[in-house]
Structure formats: structure tokens, C-alpha cells
């Protein structure tokens, strides 16, 4: 049986991991390679690297990071951030990433998903969606540009469209829950999970182990992603997995 996946997410800026990493025992908490190896050792099923570099040089450095990570890791990893063209995808995948994640670029030009899926296969096309509840819409609205810009898209409609173009997986972040540590957004995850036939990764809101159980059992997510809860050592990947196993979930 397929297992539920636990995915730590690392924000990388100009080649360095940023956004509060508190690790004791690591030589350098900002080194993406070292952190990747650390999470791999803990049993992470997969990793996501989000390149938040502002400069061209930063994106170039990311390619070097990807190459080095691929040399160290024997688990899959996804790279997102700043990928706007088929050429960008080629470079990241050739450097050793297993999947690319598209967000704003896919909303601005949805054909990009199709181009990537036609060339590399749907399985390495992840479409990341940032969604926020909208009273007027009575549902969740899709945002782009790191959550700064509202779009016309309702979340399930966009997810369906993305999948029809070749998205192999949806990385769904709840902007309402992100950083709140009060749990994943179960209604949002259900809404999108019911709308599409591809795996959905829950993101935003993880605060404790029970939240992961909710994401899987109640929301039906296929994987759950978290950043700060792992970076700040509030719990560990190993602890979460062992808890979920105890609850009877299929876990590696």
C-alpha cells in the first residue's frame, strides 16, 4: 500500500536556507545540503526546496545547490520558485531535481504546465497553489506572487484546470492557516482533493503531530508539508512518522 508522505520544506535564498532554522549539532544551519541530509536521516519521504532568491545570481546558485543535493540525497526532491519557462525546468531537472513546482508562472500562462508535462511527463509537474478563503466567493480564491495578488480563480476550478493541462500533483497551501500552527485547512483540502484525481500535498498550519493525522484521515491528503515545526524542532519528522504509524496509518 502507498504510504502517506511527510515533506519538510526549505526556503532557499541566494543559496542559503532562510526563515528560522534552529538546529543544534549542525555545523551550519543555513546550509541546504547539510539540512537536506539531516532530514533524510530522520526519514523524510521527500523534500521541497523553494528558491526565493531575488536575483539572477541567486537562481544560478540554486542550480549548484540542486546538483549538490542530488549528490547527497537518495530520496526525491522538488524545486520551486522562479521557474517560468521550459528552459528553467530543463535546467533544474537536469541538475538532478525530480520534480519542479510552478506557481505564479502557471497562473499567468497555464500552457507552461502542458509544455512541461509533454516534455518531462506529468509526474514531475507539481502545481503549487496559494489559496485564501473569500467570503464573497463563498470559497477559496487563488493568489499569486507569494500571496500578494488575488486572481479570478476559484481554487478547485484552478486545480482542475491545472490537472487537465498535465499537473501530476497539487501542493496546496492555505494562506489562512499558514504560520498559525492551528492545523491544516481541512475543508480546503477536501474541496480540492474531491475535485482532482492527482495527489494533493497539504501545506500551511502544521503545529503538532495530531494535525498531520487530521490532514490524512479527515482531509484525505496524500502528503503533508511543513517547515517551521521541523526547523524549530517543535517535533521531528521521525516523531511525527512514529506517531502516525501508531495511529495505524501506512507510513514508511
Amino acid at each position: 500500500m502507498l504510504t502517506k508522505r511527510i515533506i519538510p520544506c526549505l526556503d532557499v535564498k541566494e543559496g542559503r536556507v532562510v526563515k528560522g532554522i534552529q538546529f543544534v549539532g549542525l555545523r551550519d544551519a543555513g546550509d541546504p545540503i547539510e539540512l537536506a541530509a539531516f532530514y533524510d536521516g530522520q526519514g523524510a519521504d521527500e523534500l521541497v526546496f523553494l528558491d526565493i532568491s531575488a536575483s539572477h545570481e541567486g537562481h544560478e546558485t540554486m542550480i549548484e545547490v540542486v546538483e549538490e543535493v542530488a549528490g547527497k540525497l537518495a530520496i526525491p526532491f522538488t524545486v520551486g520558485g522562479g521557474i517560468r519557462t521550459l528552459e528553467d525546468m530543463k535546467r533544474v531537472l537536469r541538475a538532478g531535481a525530480d520534480k519542479v513546482s510552478l506557481n505564479t508562472a502557471a497562473v499567468l500562462r497555464p500552457e507552461l504546465i502542458k509544455e512541461g508535462a509533454d516534455f518531462f511527463g506529468a509526474q514531475c509537474m507539481v502545481v503549487a497553489i496559494d489559496a485564501k478563503y473569500d467570503e464573497e466567493l463563498g470559497s477559496w480564491r487563488v493568489y499569486t506572487h507569494g500571496g500578494r495578488k488575488a486572481t479570478e480563480w476559484e481554487v478547485a476550478d484552478w486545480a482542475k484546470h491545472a490537472v487537465s493541462l498535465g499537473a501530476g500533483e497539487i501542493l496546496l497551501t492555505s494562506m489562512d492557516q499558514d504560520g498559525a500552527k492551528t492545523g491544516f485547512d481541512v475543508p480546503l483540502l477536501k474541496k480540492v482533493g474531491d475535485a482532482v484525481s492527482v495527489p494533493v500535498i497539504a501545506s500551511g498550519g502544521a503545529g503538532n503531530q495530531e494535525h498531520f493525522l487530521e490532514a490524512f484521515n479527515e482531509a484525505g491528503a496524500d502528503a503533508a508539508l511543513a517547515a517551521s515545526i521541523f526547523h524549530y524542532k517543535e517535533t521531528s519528522v521521525a516523531e511525527v512518522k512514529s506517531y502516525l504509524k501508531g495511529e495505524g496509518l501506512s507510513i514508511r
Binding site: L2, D45, S197, P199, D222
Partner: peptide, 19 residues
């Protein structure tokens, strides 16, 4: 197929860790 013999839909691709 994306659907089991009993008609239950399942996800494609088969993505993740399996035994």
C-alpha cells in the same frame, strides 16, 4: 485504470513510497 474493480476511483500517478 484510475478505478478499482469495484468502481472506487484511485489516484494516478502512482506516486510515493510503496512496499
Amino acid at each position: 485504470q484510475g478505478q478499482s474493480a469495484d468502481g472506487t476511483p484511485y489516484k494516478v500517478p502512482h506516486m510515493g513510497w510503496n512496499q
